[in-house]
Each structure stands twice: as structure tokens, then as C-alpha cells.
Design a protein around this nucleic acid. Sequence first.
DNA 1: GATTGTTTTCGTCGTAATGACGATAAGCCT
DNA 2: AGGCTTATCGTCATTACGACGAAAACAATC
Lengths: 232, 232
Amino acid sequence: MAYDPSAFEPFAVTVDLVVLTIRDDELCVLTVERGEEPYAGRRALPGGFVLPDEDLETAALRELAEETGLTATDVHLEQLRTYGAPARDPRMRVVSVAHLALAPDLPTPQAGTDAAAASWVPVSSVGPLAFDHDEVLRDGLERARAKLEYSPLATAFCPPEFTIGELRRVYEVVWGVSLDPRNFHRKATATPGFLVATGERTNRQGGRPAELFRRGEAIALLPPMNRPAPHS
Amino acid sequence: MAYDPSAFEPFAVTVDLVVLTIRDDELCVLTVERGEEPYAGRRALPGGFVLPDEDLETAALRELAEETGLTATDVHLEQLRTYGAPARDPRMRVVSVAHLALAPDLPTPQAGTDAAAASWVPVSSVGPLAFDHDEVLRDGLERARAKLEYSPLATAFCPPEFTIGELRRVYEVVWGVSLDPRNFHRKATATPGFLVATGERTNRQGGRPAELFRRGEAIALLPPMNRPAPHS
DNA sequence: GATTGTTTTCGTCGTAATGACGATAAGCCT
DNA sequence: AGGCTTATCGTCATTACGACGAAAACAATC
């Protein structure tokens, strides 16, 4: 980095959030409704400015807490991609560091200060969003779908203890496919480090009571889960 | 994004580059030597400010051309990650959008304007770099190694036409393993869309002449290449 | 209380993919 | 010619995977 002070130009830096959860067997994204121009009335991804002394991830966590009341212990958060097209915001030069957050379906309503405008929208029926947020959402969905294959990230959509059936539902909803329960059970339990049995059982799904599992310590899934071609 | 003008604070936005190539069977990264404080005398990743009307990728390509003379048609370029710790640059608040570039080993010396200070360093012996560039390089290497598994990206290290043996060397050098030539040949030629035979042969490797291939149209490798545990 | 329905969980079976390795081909060098 | 190198084709045993059958263990209903 050869800094030439004469070349320095100020940019605004923001974080935008793609927050995904599963509600009623549908993949949903958190959106806010814009009140001001540009794109007044449109839905947009939540986000805001990075404060002068704030880390990028800290800013993302702060925005996440403001919109949903979720904290770092509740959600998986990772940086997604940075969007910086010169005209992406007509008012000024804004570079936005998008983050991807995956949260379980909390029974808690969306607490938080300005949560009034925030709402979950199924990704299948989310209209055109403000700014370049359609592209951001598309990239976030792609990342989430890909990461389910080779990481234990699907557990981020589940409560701390969950059944294999609930985990399978996550894969089915996020990928938009239907998976064989028997093969999925075999694969999930055979993948080392993916799941830890608790020894307890639950029958909250109806049917035969299922064993409860916790997330294992594995960072990556070996072998990975195989994603079939879409369409159930 | 609820813009509150009072919260707006100017940031400097830069692009940093992790440019990788393979020279003499070693994975090398492009570095520049810093002349000024901070970190004067240290090596650093090439990079520079994003211009006021410039896209992020355009800025990365411009810096790449300035340092190496390489153009978009020669290299693979993708965004890597954004680094924005408040104190990562002691002079001012700098947010850096790091990019990963993979280039074939061009016989052309590093042309370009200020290429004098730029040089290839084997990643195995690269000392501590300036700023947080050690972390950036680590992330770039991890990304490159992972992408060789499920994308045809290894071809970015090769000339337009290459042999299976040359391609295998890429995998071996980047992953730091040794692969069975027979199994690799079977897998590479069987993966649909990975390689296109040209019909021509070359004996530039010594030994029996090998068929020349071009990169296929596949975006992803199905099934992926399998990375064995390190240590050859 | 027997039946129906649901979900879980354990097996089976044929096919495909994979790793280990033998063998041959086709050039170069001495 | 003989040896060395790399490329390419094949074999074989093991494993992974997709498609199913079947039993287990509950709830709801007749």
C-alpha cells in the first residue's frame, strides 16, 4: 500500500445484514421498510454506518442487536462480501460490507429499539429490494446453501438441542429439495464431529420419539453433505 | 440502512492484493517493499486507494496492472475479504477490500511502472508482513486451497494449454501434498466440463509426450477433487 | 382396544467413486 | 541398446451413496 495522500478520498462505510431464519418451513430474510428517499417505501436489508472506532464485525453485531435483539451467542455471523459500485447509493459514495447471519426461529418476537419496521419475509416472495440489496441477498443465499454442504452451519438454524428430523428440515428448506430421511440419518450420524447425542428424547415432532443431539466440534464436514438437484 | 447524517464519518478505502503464482514448483506471492513509515523496510501486499469514481474490482485490476502488467484476461481475480480493524493502519481509519488473484508463471518479467520494488516470494518463507497482511495472506491461501477442490481454478495457474501433469503439479504445490498421477489423470479427465482436449501433444515435461488440454466451461467440479491430509 | 398415521431408526442391495498399485507406451539421454 | 522419465490404461478391494424394505414407538381416531 503506497499511500499517496493526494489520492485519499473519503468514503462512507456501512454494514448490511442478510439475516436468515426458518419460520413455518420457509426460509425467511429480515427486512426493514425504508421511510425516506431514495427507495422510500421499498424494503431493504438492515444495516447502518460503521462507527469511527468500531470493528466491522462489531458494527454488524450492533446492527443485528438493534434490529432483532439477537446477540453473538444466538447467531452465526460471518462476513459475506463488500459492495462498492460508485453509484450504488445516489447520495454519496458508500462502500458496504455485507454480513451473513443465520439464526434459529426464536419464539421471542423481534424485540429491540427500532424493530417496528423490521419483519421476516420468505425469500421466495421477497420483492425487489432497495439499492443493490437483491444482489446482496442472492449472494447471501448462495453462500448459505453452499456452506450447508461442507460445514455444520445448518445447526445455526436449530435450537441448541435438536433432532435429526429437524436438522433435515433445515437442509430441505434451504436447498429447496426433499431428502430421504433414512439416508440423511445415516449420513448425519456417521459424519465425525457433526453431532453429539444427548441421550434424551423428544416427541415434539409427532411420531416416534427422536433422540436429541447437540452440535459437535467439527469445523468442516468430511465427507460433505451432498446437495441434489433442486425441485422436490 | 437508516442513514443518519450525523453518524457519517469518512473512511479511507483501499484494495489490497494477494497475487499468487507458481514458480519453480513453489507457491509464490507478490510483495512490495515499503519505503516509508509505518513498517518501513517491511514487505507488504500490493494495494492502493480506490479512486472516487472507481469500482472495487476496477481498482484491484488497476493496481494489479500497475504492479505486474497483468490484465483481466491473464488472471483470475476475485474479492477475498474486507479488513477494517480500527487500528490496522496507525495513520488513519482504513478499510481495505482484499482481492485474490491467481496468475500463471509468465516468462515476462514484471513489467509496469513501479514494478521495481515488486517481487515474488515463496509463501513458505515470507517473513512477517506489514499491517495485518499476514492475516490477509493466510486467508487468501486458505481460499485458494479450498477453491481448488470444487472449482476449476487450478487452471488459472497454467498457461492456456497445459498437460494433466502440469495441472497435477499445481494441486501438489498449492496443497503441499503429492498425488497419484494415475488416479489424478482418471479423475481430471472424467470430471465433466473440467478439461477440453486439444488433440495436440507436447513433450516439454520430458518423458512420454502428453496430450494438451484447455480449460473447460465448468464453473464447479462435480465431483470435487479430494484433498488428502498435508505432508507429502 | 384395535386401527391408522406419523416419524424415527436400523438394514439391504446394487452402483458409483476412490485409493493403491501393476503394466505398458513413448519420448529423452548416455 | 539400455536406462530414465512421464503419460496413460487397467485391475481390484474398499468405501460411499441412492433407492428402498421393515420394524419401532408414539398420537389420534374409530
